[in-house]
């Protein structure tokens, strides 16, 4: 394991906004971040998917990671959840280096995720899907009946209580995305990573999804959301990180980042490229 600490000397470009939770221990007024990513790099053969990424996520805050297709968003999620290993760099959760922890250990340490393509357990109903995740997640791991109670609470928080007895095949995409969130929350995360939780949704489902996302950051929990839609990003993000070609292009308050010339060029450029106009 290398690099994760050596690069920490570069100060994180923290937004000056209402970040400042008072830190009783430090003089600088900055709390240690929940998640500290330093120099994270992943290559696939000659292709650099993610290069020298530095990121912080704090408890009570929601960081949106945005960027055109191929920017490295999914690679970032996979690196933080043990689905991929970095070539260089690393990350710490609550000060503990978890860079090369196995998947299950990351989940039990408090990093849980949703999947871009929902992957519910088809043989189990919604309630059971969440209960199983509650039982297997981070400690203290509940017994069966306590897990059932936790699942019921989460279904109510995520608006799925009406569908608790439905099987995944009967659910709409919006409900499947909620189930992904409920299951990731069931693992009692310190850091929740939601990979495109609004992907493929439309109209009222997006508004309801935005309302749900706004409830996820808690005093004991930080959140990373991968999202494309500008309107949603502006409504949910405490901070925005914009990736482009595997590099962190800009980072800061969402409105500022989205107004940035380089970001606009990258995003519009990618849009035009997709439409065959560039």
């Amino acid at each position: 394991m290398t690099g994760s600490t050596t690069r920490a000397s570069r100060p994180a470009s923290r937004s000056p906004g209402p970040t400042g939770t008072s830190d009783p221990a430090g003089d600088c007024g900055e709390a240690a971040p929940l998640l500290k990513v330093r120099g994270l790099t992943r290559r696939f053969g000659g292709l650099v998917a993610l290069e020298e990424i530095d990121l912080d996520v704090e408890v009570g805050r929601l960081l949106v990671v945005m960027g055109p297709n191929g920017a490295g968003k999914s690679t970032l999620v996979d690196l933080l959840t043990g689905y991929l290993r970095p070539n260089e760099g690393g990350f710490r959760l609550d000060g503990v280096d978890l860079t090369f922890s196995p998947r299950w250990s990351l989940a039990r340490s408090g990093i849980t995720r949703t999947f871009q393509v929902p992957r519910p357990l088809a043989r189990f109903d919604v309630r059971e899907n969440v209960r199983i995740a509650a039982r297997c997640g981070s400690p203290p791991r509940p017994g069966r009946s306590a897990a059932e109670r936790q699942a019921a609470e989460l279904l109510s928080e995520t608006g799925l209580d009406g569908q608790a007895s439905c099987y995944p095949a009967e659910l709409s995409l919006a409900s499947l995305r909620r189930l992904e969130l409920a299951r990731a929350l069931a693992g009692r995360p310190r850091l929740l990573i939601a990979d495109e939780p609004l992907g493929g949704l439309a109209g009222a489902d997006i508004d309801a999804g935005i309302a749900l996302l706004r409830t996820l950051a808690r005093p004991d929990r930080g959140v990373i959301v991968i999202e494309h839609a500008v309107r949603a990003v502006l409504q949910v993000a405490d901070e925005l990180a914009f990736l482009h070609h595997g590099r962190l292009l800009r980072r800061g308050p969402a409105a500022e980042v989205l107004a940035d010339r380089a970001v606009v060029d990258a995003y519009v450029g990618a849009g035009l490229l997709r439409r065959g106009l560039l």
Binding site: R103, A122, R123, A133, R135, G137, S138, R183
Partner: peptide, 26 residues
């Protein structure tokens, strides 16, 4: 089948690649 190991095996059977993300040591 009612134990945590039973739950873990059910996930492994249905989606082994998912199991780790739920905290299951496969």
């Amino acid at each position: 089948v009612r134990s945590r190991l039973g739950d873990s095996l059910a996930v492994i059977r249905d989606d082994e690649d998912l199991a780790g993300a739920l905290g299951i040591a496969v």
